[in-house]
Computed example of a mutant assay.
Amino acid sequence: MNASPFLRQQLLLVDDEEDALQELAELLEGEGFCCLLATSVKVALQQLTRHPDIALVITDLRMPEESGLALIRRLREHTSRQYLPIIVISGHAAAEDVDELRRMQVLGLFRKPIYHVRLLETLNTLFPQPILHVANL
């Protein structure tokens, strides 16, 4: 259940570690975001097809079948999604990964375990919370 009185953007979270995925989804849903989950690149691509209003992807870099890098490459090659903002999370990013991510214009790289405050600051800058107007009684 969403604790926030308003809904913000729809985010796609991609990570093969289901516990990490659930924890991140709970955090972001508590901030009003609607989170769709995917445990693989294949499922992530299906979610992106089904939900054209996804505003941002947060993906793990290292996953067993296909990497987050493969997902980003596919998105950057796809005309309708080539500018979709992407944040990468990883516990094991090599220097060449960082260079490749920079070339593919990802919004940020967050090391695992994720520093949630910094992630929320980034998302709040991108997607400011709507201001609720209260009528004077």
Rank of each mutant, 00 (worst) to 15 (best):
H51I: 00
H116T: 08
N124S: 13
K42L: 03
R50P: 01
T122D: 00
R102E: 09
E121D: 15
H51E: 08
I58M: 11
L45D: 02
T59K: 08
E17K: 03
G91P: 02
P85E: 09
T122V: 09
Q10A: 11
L56E: 01
V106D: 01
P52F: 04
L84S: 09
G108N: 10
A93M: 10
L7Q: 13
S4F: 12
L12W: 06
T125L: 08
I72G: 04
Q105G: 00
I89G: 00
L28M: 08
L45N: 06
S90I: 11
L61H: 03
G32D: 02
R74S: 07
V57P: 01
G108K: 13
E65W: 09
D97M: 13
R103Q: 15
F127I: 01
D97E: 13
A38P: 03
A70C: 11
M1C: 07
P113S: 04
D16N: 15
S90D: 08
F33E: 09
D19Y: 05
C34R: 14
L71Y: 00
L75P: 05
L126N: 07
L27E: 12
L21T: 04
L11G: 08
D53P: 02
S80D: 14
I54F: 04
P64L: 10
L126P: 01
L61P: 03
R8G: 14
D60Q: 03
P113E: 01
V43E: 13
V98T: 13
D15H: 06
C35T: 02
L11K: 07
R111K: 12
I54R: 04
N2G: 14
A44D: 08
Q10T: 15
F127N: 10
E18M: 12
Q82R: 15
I89A: 15
Q46M: 07
S90F: 09
L69D: 06
M1F: 04
F127W: 10
P130E: 06
P52G: 05
G91N: 07
H78T: 15
T122M: 05
E96K: 15
Q105Y: 07
A38Q: 05
L61V: 05
H78D: 13
L75M: 14
E26Y: 03
